[in-house]
Design a protein around this nucleic acid. Sequence first.
DNA 1: GAGAATTCTTGACAAGTGTCCAGTAGGATG
DNA 2: CATCCTACTGGACACTTGTCAAGAATTCTC
Lengths: 205, 205
Amino acid sequence: MVTYSERVANAGVDKFSRRREELATSALETLAERGYANTGLRDIAQRSEFSHGVLHYYFQDKNDLIQHCVRQYKSECATQYDDIVATSQTADELDERFCAAMADTLRDEASMHRLWYDLRNQSMFQAELTPVIQEIDGLLERMIWTIVTRYAELRGRDPVVDSPLAYAMYDGMFEQALGAFLTGDLSALDAVAANCGRILRLIVP
Amino acid sequence: MVTYSERVANAGVDKFSRRREELATSALETLAERGYANTGLRDIAQRSEFSHGVLHYYFQDKNDLIQHCVRQYKSECATQYDDIVATSQTADELDERFCAAMADTLRDEASMHRLWYDLRNQSMFQAELTPVIQEIDGLLERMIWTIVTRYAELRGRDPVVDSPLAYAMYDGMFEQALGAFLTGDLSALDAVAANCGRILRLIVP
DNA sequence: GAGAATTCTTGACAAGTGTCCAGTAGGATG
DNA sequence: CATCCTACTGGACACTTGTCAAGAATTCTC
């Protein structure tokens, strides 16, 4: 009898961990569509090509699966704006490309962002989720701060707020735009781009 | 046979609607403690002095109950800062009292705020909730805007951002502080007060 | 190709979900 | 006292939930 823990221990970049990713992807899609509260393991399995029992073969329990999902979500976000920061030559170019990218991700990945907010919120009620959520939240904060400091550098000034507050402002603004966009308000796309720049110039005057 | 709709129609400020409020209060407490995803009608009834069946006597279904809860929550928030705005004599006094009040509500009503974010998020997956959520969101936005414009008035200046963006910035900042506070980070109380003032001076330079 | 290990399916489990309804207690009305 | 209506109980319903284990199917090893 090979226990679950032993399977995890032996898992390199082999078939086992590849299938885990595959299942986590199905889970992410289902969660993004239906929300945490309305998604069961059978819903997730149905979207994959396997039956529901297999989820307990690859994951310890539902919590383990969710945490794996969040971690996998991370890798999609991590390097999203690195290229823009690295290749923009002027402050205005950085500003413009950053704003456009924010509007694009709102349009193209709205339900994934919705899931992120859902899970982050869920972590306020379910302490087991806190570590992995904080991990990604820190990552997003650093992402924003990288843009802000690079923008300040290009303009030869200093930001007038610190990293957490800068992130919080962008986060609140984006969440608001997401809510509007999901109710069918297409002007939220323009709004997010405009507000993106406004905040930037507010932070780096 | 008296149907549910007829009971609603006849409901003035009588025993019927008072009991509805009572049950909605029990529901709010339970939801704030356990979260939307982990709260059943039996959990709610258990916190009240009635059995679970009575919930369908006073509410059409779970959704009806939730919406009633949100509306009831509203009335607690509506006039929260009106007094501060009305009685503050100087910009500095308004600033200081506003910051202190934000820190207080974070400390004293953390789980209620947590529930608010939970339900607002749930409305992104459950369209029936959208109207009542937007209603309160607009109320909160107006609350913030009242403070900002009064502060600007006292300082003889104009805000440099519009109402939605001002609200979004405060909202993001408060949500961040709430998350930190719920993990036991008591410094979030000071942070929210400090950031409150920072945003104010950012918006009204 | 036989045997062993891994991978996956299927059905079952106890518990929990929202909903509904027959029935009861109790007070008001006739 | 009898009748009616309101308020409430508690059990039953159909269904879903996470979890698990026995066994089948597949893949790997020799």
